[in-house]
Design a protein around this nucleic acid. Structure first.
Lengths: 233, 233
DNA sequence: TCGCAATTATGTTTTACAGCACAAATTTAC
DNA sequence: GTAAATTTGTGCTGTAAAACATAATTGCGA
């Protein structure tokens, strides 16, 4: 258990947008209902068909949201970094989760009961707008993903994935190496292909001098070319 | 131009959920800013990259939301029936439209400036919740679509599309014939395949006695079998 | 009502990618 | 510190679906 002063520090420093939308009174409601959780690598935070009860807030680590399809084939839908919120969509839609969330690596998360969040929304319009904005951005992203994943060829989809990872988790000090180290399987599940094809295509990119691969470390050395490959399909 | 009494009748009868969330004062704001538009078959309501300015409300007819992909290949993302709202997502996300909307058939629509809608949201929490709910439902739908369109085989995708059309636009009095008559091309764009393959697969379904086709009239005569095909992939 | 364009239909060819098999390398477990 | 399990890497085969070609049919505009 983390002591309250630390908790208040985390919340008030990282929750930015959402936190700033609250009155002092409402901030107290949040801190009183905020619970810290630790998740191990690959541990599941919630699973498909579960009833949504909490708003989750990623404080440290990395989280993936994924969904099982035909023959248990997995599609990674979204990635989260600190400090982002997730787990609320299904609650607002009034349905069980249609996807699962799990930790990519050891992660710290905060949970707030959705009932609390809902009552805060009713008392605070800025908070409502925060969620409207988040949902609207995600929906645009999913619509774009539909077209990218169904219409682009393997090379385009993998290039997309690499650029997304750079955007989402950033690059190391060399301004080229992805900060996230993920398995070939995860990379495949992100870009809708088999693990074999992810490996194969990654190898092609290496021989084309677009990237350098060292185990799970991926260094993007020609991002413009990757963008071109992504654009063509 | 439709006279005001008719307009008020349309609005107060059809806008249901959203309308009921408003105070009398707010209802007046809506009627004062509500403009009726007629669209011809295939006419574009708004296009990709346009700046979103209006909330659109479909009063009669049918509307498709679609997005261009690689080589101008089109994916139909969502379908709208009276009385549903659309066109607001991009505004809330603070970005240009990423998809277009056009009328499937002659349609009547109402528009309300998003600025008006936004100010109403700030004054009315029920309205905010209405949009949160809509966006949350749509996002779940898009996430499911990602998996269905990328992982299911052609037969499964077409079966999905037929069942979706039944759900969305309903059936005629025989409880079997789809109320929407769409081109094979639209059917293909809805289920992510070429027009040739939509035609071919439709023919297979006919010979398997799952459907009866008469021009653009499609009669579902074995919905359970279609559901099975959809489920397997 | 005629003629042109769009839509529907069907056959053939091509290919991108899944599926499978298996080997090598790396990580994990005990 | 060694065995087992997992991950990574490569080659081969099969096939689902796109691409292309070409009629036949329908719809539409002048």
């Amino acid at each position: 258990m983390i002591k309250k002063s630390t908790l208040e520090y985390i919340i008030s420093h990282d929750l930015a947008d959402m936190w700033n939308a609250l009155t002092p009174e409402q901030k107290r409601v949040v801190t009183d209902n905020f619970v810290i959780h630790k998740f191990k690598k690959n541990q599941i935070i919630y699973a498909e068909s579960d009833t949504p009860e909490y708003l989750w807030c990623l404080l440290s680590g990395k989280v993936k949201m994924h969904k099982k399809g035909i023959g248990d084939r997995i599609q990674i839908l979204r990635l989260y970094r600190p400090v982002q919120y997730f787990g609320y969509r299904a609650y607002f839609a009034g349905e069980p989760y249609v996807s699962s969330a799990s930790a990519f690596e050891p992660s710290t998360l905060g949970s707030i009961p959705m009932k609390v969040v809902e009552s805060l929304i009713h008392a605070n319009n800025d908070l409502a707008m925060f969620f409207i904005h988040e949902l609207a951005c995600n929906l645009g992203g999913s619509d774009t993903k539909i077209v990218n994943l169904t219409q682009k060829h393997i090379r385009g989809r993998l290039a997309d994935a690499l650029l997304l990872l750079a955007d989402n988790y950033g690059l190391e000090d060399d301004d080229a190496t992805l900060k996230i180290y993920m398995s070939r399987e995860d990379l495949a599940n992100l870009s809708n292909m088999t693990t074999s094809n992810a490996i194969r295509t990654l190898t092609s990119f290496v021989s084309e001098k677009l990237i350098i691969v060292d185990g799970r470390r991926i260094k993007l050395i020609n991002r413009e070319a990757l963008k071109k490959i992504s654009k063509f399909g």
